[in-house]
Design a binder for these strands. Structure first.
Lengths: 168, 168
DNA sequence: AACGAGTAGTTGAACGTTGTAGTAATGAGG
DNA sequence: CCTCATTACTACAACGTTCAACTACTCGTT
């Protein structure tokens, strides 16, 4: 059923022949690709249906709730969430319109903007958290042994480090 | 720095107290969340810059190239890629406009539509594959031991199964 | 053979994201 | 103290995705 799609690799820059993935590597990579899609789709749907928040909005609330004074610079927030600045601006604008966060220009650095969690935002987070935690337990944690979960954490930290190192 | 954001969980439906995640589970889940964002962002950018294809478009090409006759029903393709039907329709419409695939209504079932990889699409895939494989090697495979990678594949297959089982 | 229920795919509008510019504030060098 | 480079964020437009109809076909009943 699965025939090799490509057996004559085209040339890459100078003389660098590409080593293809073997069957096991292929399968693992494919499982990661599909598994993450299925997982995040399910988590997003659970949260959306249960609380009206998207995963991204929820993450914004979480990060702010953990910050001292419940305040973070927009750029720091963008960095933590791995979002573009532009994307974060839009997301935060919507959340500000809904009263979950508020913005004011930073006192330290006139260029910066501070984003603060409002009481309403905190209340919304407290309401959403049990729904989300239950969802994560059911979809992710329940599917793995404790060791598998922790190994998975280690692996993704390594991946994260590798990717960031490769473009500094 | 990281204070507990929520210590008084609100009530969930009937008497079901939520068990919170312990610190290790939290850390693992957070690593997964951030790691996948960083990884897919990097893979997407590598591919986009190197070939002008998005990861999604690339996956469409791959699945078609592996199918017998390089043809798949739209619904099968949507299922494999974990995309909504509507999303796939839009994506395929753009790809058809660019000459990478073609569509014709299925001879078996008048409701169905077959999507076929064109020669141009196959050529485009052969051109993109080495770029993508190199990227996956660099970002993902190079960051892990072989065993870690295979374990990761196993874990995501379990997650996939669990999620799908929970909504059949 | 005609109905209704169900399935397959498309459409269009609303929404969210990305990329490209643009504005504003800081800070180093002349 | 003025410029130029840098950093921080926002605005706008192009693009992609989602959601809710809508069309078209199939299949099991009656």
């Amino acid at each position: 059923m699965t025939q090799t799609p490509i057996d004559t690799p085209t040339q890459t820059p100078p003389g660098a022949e590409v080593r293809w993935l073997d069957a096991e590597q292929q399968a693992a990579w494919r499982a990661l690709l599909t598994g993450t899609s299925v997982l995040f789709e399910a988590l997003g749907r659970d949260l959306e249906h249960g609380t009206g928040l998207s995963l991204h909005e929820y993450e914004v609330l979480v990060r702010l709730s953990e910050a001292p004074g419940r305040v973070l610079r927009m750029s720091v927030l963008a960095e933590e969430l791995v979002h573009s600045r532009s994307r974060l601006t839009h997301t935060v604008s919507r959340m500000e319109r809904d009263g979950l966060v508020s913005r004011c220009s930073s006192s330290q650095d006139g260029r910066g903007v501070d984003c603060m969690l409002t009481d309403a935002g905190m209340a919304r987070l407290e309401e959403a958290a049990p729904v989300h935690v239950a969802s994560v337990r059911r979809r992710l944690i329940g599917a793995l042994s404790r060791e598998q979960l922790l190994d998975l954490g280690v692996a993704f930290n390594q991946i994260d480090d590798a990717v960031r190192a490769h473009r500094s």
